[in-house]
Computed example of a mutant assay.
Amino acid sequence: MDKFKETFLEVVYAIFPVTVVVILLQFSLIWLPMEAFIQFLIGVVFVTIGLWLFLIGVQVGLLPIGELVGKTLPKTGKLSLLLFVAFLLGFVVTVAEPDVRVLATQVDQVSNGQIGSGILIYSVALGVGIFVALAMLRIVYQIPIQYLLIASYGLAFALSFFIPKGFVPISFDAGGVTTGPMTVPFIIALGVGVASVLRSKSSSADSFGLVGLASVGPILAVMILGVIYR
């Protein structure tokens, strides 16, 4: 019960400043129609309740399961199984990520349907899945993360010169939206579980950096999509 209260207070503290700023702007500068302002207040209530329930679900279900999966897979001794499950989990949690769907909807509207929301969602999810598997490979073979980040971002910047200009900001935004409340907890928990089994002495160092590495995948995936659409 104390955990529920603590999580609820965290959500309130996160949303309250935004609400106060909008209210101050409403009655000092912008003066939106009262109907729109009331809808905003109703939305604040729904967001508060929804985010609170979501975070409770993450703490109760996603984090423990992610860590248990991460601890169980290395014990099978099958690297291919570890990489496949890491790819699959990275893919499906990204498809379920609300931020990714918001970006895909906005891009679909702005591009007048030329870049469909479904294509963008699955491209981003594919990129995350591949790089989560790569992150697991890094833990297994003790590859320094800076080498992978330099190579990945170097490739991303090189590709940016060969794709339509509109795809460059979309690709980097795609990398940002994958660091949302659905993807991040699960990827970190998975990494903690795998690292704790494979390299117990340095599990804390190995289990972090996964989100930063995984977020490069969507950038490259959308850029490759730009090469196809060119």
Rank of each mutant, 00 (worst) to 15 (best):
V92G: 00
M182D: 03
V110F: 15
Y122V: 05
Q146D: 13
P164C: 09
V107R: 08
P218Q: 03
P74D: 01
D206Y: 15
G175A: 09
I30F: 15
A133E: 07
I228Q: 04
A135D: 09
S117Q: 13
L25R: 01
V194I: 09
L73E: 02
A156F: 02
S117K: 09
G191C: 11
I228V: 11
P74R: 11
A135G: 13
T94N: 07
T19Y: 12
I130K: 01
L149V: 15
I49P: 00
G70I: 04
L137Y: 14
I49M: 10
P64L: 06
I119W: 07
G61H: 04
V192Q: 13
A36G: 02
P218Y: 03
S111I: 08
L137E: 10
L41I: 14
F162T: 04
F46I: 15
G66I: 08
L198D: 03
Q106M: 13
T19S: 11
G212R: 02
I170W: 09
G154V: 12
A151T: 10
R138N: 13
Y147Q: 05
G209S: 03
Y229F: 05
V197F: 08
T183W: 08
F91T: 01
A189M: 04
I224N: 04
S202T: 14
K201Y: 10
F131V: 02
L79K: 11
A36K: 11
M34E: 14
T94Y: 04
L126E: 00
A96D: 00
G154Q: 10
P164K: 06
I224A: 09
G129Q: 06
P17K: 05
G226Q: 06
L148T: 04
